[in-house]
Design a binder for these strands. Sequence first.
DNA 1: GTCTATATCCAGATAGAC
DNA 2: GTCTATCTGGATATAGAC
Lengths: 197, 197
Amino acid sequence: MLEEPIGDRRTKRHEATRREIVEAAWGLARENGLAGVSLRDLGKRVGMQAPSLYSYFPSKAAIYDAMFSEGTRAFLERLRALDTPRDPKRRLLTSARAFAEFCVEDPVRYQLLFQRTIPDFEPSAESYATAIATLDQGRDLLAAAGITDGASLDLWTALLTGIVDQQLSNDPRGQRWTRLLPDAVDMFLAHRRKGRR
Amino acid sequence: MLEEPIGDRRTKRHEATRREIVEAAWGLARENGLAGVSLRDLGKRVGMQAPSLYSYFPSKAAIYDAMFSEGTRAFLERLRALDTPRDPKRRLLTSARAFAEFCVEDPVRYQLLFQRTIPDFEPSAESYATAIATLDQGRDLLAAAGITDGASLDLWTALLTGIVDQQLSNDPRGQRWTRLLPDAVDMFLAHRRKGRR
DNA sequence: GTCTATATCCAGATAGAC
DNA sequence: GTCTATCTGGATATAGAC
């Protein structure tokens, strides 16, 4: 029972460095784009030579994977932290705003999690499972707002992701599209009411 | 007046080869992704060595640029060929369908024209000007359907591009989202009528 | 764990013979 | 116009000394 704490300390140090590397990778990605992260630059940023990174990650893809799983975890926490107003309209708007804010506040994370445009990167099975569970959570959230049928879900996700996408593409630091969210919710819910009559 | 035809013939041959190269580039892009077009592969495909391509284009970016301008030209022609029904709803649906079809029928072209995710490629000033003129044409088309105020335009473009984007990302060869277009037009126009009351 | 040195591969672009 | 040969520079990853 004497060596265990030492092992723990080593493991902790190791873990801390891994986190440091991932953090630096986010920084590089925000500066040069996701595809612009090179192991040379990354090593430089954390103060080691590129090959030393292989003591912490078996490949570059593993670093992307760590970023991906960190992103999904953050998204899940954000969803869980939502309060759920009684009014369905408020409920839908709350979740829509949460999603839009999450996307807009970090475009690179949005790209990694939701756009999947990175060459040669597929999330590991483990990371992917977490992501799926998170999307289920999102679907539950919409169900709580009364949206359960497939066509409605598809129309709503198109509308919401369209707003986010236009915002990020055409006005990344403003609110030109996100401010339309209340209007979009009104439009969508009114249409659904009409459809049910 | 004797040498001119010869010069013409040379120019024509040159132009034909340029077109052949661009055509091959589209093919490669569809197979390996836009970023996956290499001059080596491209040369192989048209039956010459990579350096020979420089007799036809001054750089790789110039090839992308030729593709870009070809794409915008095709889009412009598509818009011009639209008939414009009297009924505003039909008019909006017609243009929406035309846009969605144009995007979905060639995802790589969509990516090049509308997503701009290519590393180190910016359209030349000339190509860009054509693109802007084309977008103006699109805006006129929406104006003809009665959409002129900024917020409405933004909401509509978000909805339409959201549908296209979800279609391409999640069901590239199906119609899961594009079939919602009539529903989307209904929803949007009903909301506008309500807003005007 | 970290380093240097290197392997391996691929890219775009250029030089110069023919 | 087309070729071969090469330049220049980038990437990920590995070998092996310390």
